[in-house]
């Protein structure tokens, strides 16, 4: 009887503990996340005082995150109105970027890897885009070709925008940013 009780406690404890730990670090953890409009950032991920959940998540693969003084990575998997990003829709990423020495904006899958599309264009950098008279960035992401700064999307399914700001003074105070200092992601229409 005692053995049954003990094995019940051990199995429950080990099973639930390991399963919950696995689920907590399978993706980027909610703990330590900073939301700025549609963008998510983990500013502590590039410092000494990294959150244990993010540290465990990063240690499960070959990750070399940006250092806190080196830059900041922002990830968006939803538009400015909170709807999930979908390859069947057209999106306009428009707005200013914070003071930075350089930025790149890419389209990736949920794991952060670029899609294998027929056209070899997975992102733009600050030097590659055409700007209007206001100087702000305006990037149109859709499956079919568009005039201007066109970023091809996968034909369907979810995707992420990844905005990386290099050598930016905001990386240490990302939690205090207002959404209007970052580009907005507007859904134009859907097929």
């Amino acid at each position: 009887m005692r053995v049954t009780h003990l094995s019940y406690v051990v199995l429950l404890g080990a099973g639930l503990g390991l399963l919950s730990a696995h689920l907590a670090i399978a993706g980027r953890p909610v703990v330590g996340r900073v939301q700025i409009g549609p963008w998510d950032a983990w500013p502590k991920g590039g410092g000494r005082d990294i959150d244990p959940y993010l540290r465990a998540h990063l240690a499960r693969g070959v990750h070399l995150p940006l250092g806190a003084g080196e830059g900041l990575e922002l990830i968006a998997d939803r538009d400015s109105e909170g709807r999930g990003l979908d390859g069947r829709c057209r999106y306009l990423v428009r707005g200013a970027t914070p003071t930075t020495r350089g930025w790149t904006l890419g389209v990736t899958d949920g794991a952060g890897e670029p899609f294998r599309l027929p056209l070899d264009r997975t992102g733009f950098s600050h030097a590659e885009i055409l700007r209007d008279e206001s100087g702000a960035m305006a990037i149109l992401a859709s499956v079919t070709a568009e005039p201007g700064n066109w970023l091809p999307l996968p034909a369907s399914g979810g995707f992420q925008f990844r905005l990386r700001l290099y050598d930016t003074p905001i990386s240490s105070q990302a939690g205090e940013l207002r959404p209007d200092v970052l580009p907005a992601i507007r859904r134009l229409d859907c097929r």
Partner: peptide, 25 residues
């Protein structure tokens, strides 16, 4: 008792993964 043990296992697992991982950078 099982839930308390699960909590301990959860914390230990999260803290030990970076130390024991052989797939990290």
């Amino acid at each position: 008792a099982g839930l308390v043990l699960a909590g301990i296992v959860h914390i230990v697992a999260v803290l030990m993964i970076p130390v024991l991982s052989e797939r990290d950078a």
